[in-house]
């Protein structure tokens, strides 16, 4: 078998060097090579959003990025959202609004919602629903997720 590729990245603010096979997705590299299992696989074809991470300042589905494409890139995963022991306001809002049931889609929703509020601090309900349409949730019917994002937006603007 040919050699693995040496990839240098910054993950959640830390320099991380990893060896990955070119056929491995960024999702596999994060989970199986780096051990960051908070990013989830739901479909492996970009349709469920459970593997959403921030990649060079944009959210992407990490199943549709190769691990080797991460060379020189900055990546934020769910593990990098909280600041130390302090939950991000979106994480807090998901808890307080009961915006999760099984929780498997939650990391993807939180990473995606964080990116939304960073570029649009006061989104309408429609804008929230549009932005999050690449993230599937089968438990909640989205009602409490949308309310959590609205709640987080208010609290982040007050802060």
């Amino acid at each position: 078998m040919p050699a693995k590729t040496y990839v240098q990245t910054i993950i959640n603010g830390e320099h991380v060097d990893l060896l990955c096979e070119p056929r491995q997705s960024l999702l596999e590299a994060l989970r199986d090579v780096v051990g960051l299992t908070g990013t989830k696989e739901g479909c492996n074809d970009g349709n469920c959003g459970a593997c959403t991470v921030e990649f060079d300042g944009r959210i992407v589905t990490s199943c549709l990025v190769l691990g080797v494409e991460a060379e020189g890139k900055e990546i934020t995963t769910i593990e990098g959202v909280a600041q130390g022991s302090e939950l991000h306001p979106i994480q807090q809002a998901f808890l307080e609004n009961a915006a999760l049931q099984c929780g498997i889609c939650t990391p993807g929703f939180i990473v995606a919602s964080k990116a939304l509020l960073e570029q649009n601090p006061d989104p309408t309900e429609h804008e929230i629903r549009f932005w999050l349409a690449n993230n599937l949730c089968r438990c909640t019917g989205y009602d409490k997720i949308v309310r959590a994002v609205q709640d987080a937006a208010v609290k982040m603007q007050e802060a």
């Binding site: 593990e79 994480q91 808890l95």
Partner: peptide, 23 residues
């Protein structure tokens, strides 16, 4: 009443371990 669920923090931080996360 509506307390925050006990397993909530693990699930919003990505720490909760699902079946595929086992190694």
């Amino acid at each position: 009443t509506r307390p925050v669920r006990h397993d909530g923090a693990d699930k919003v931080t990505g720490r909760a371990l699902y079946g595929a996360d086992f190694a």
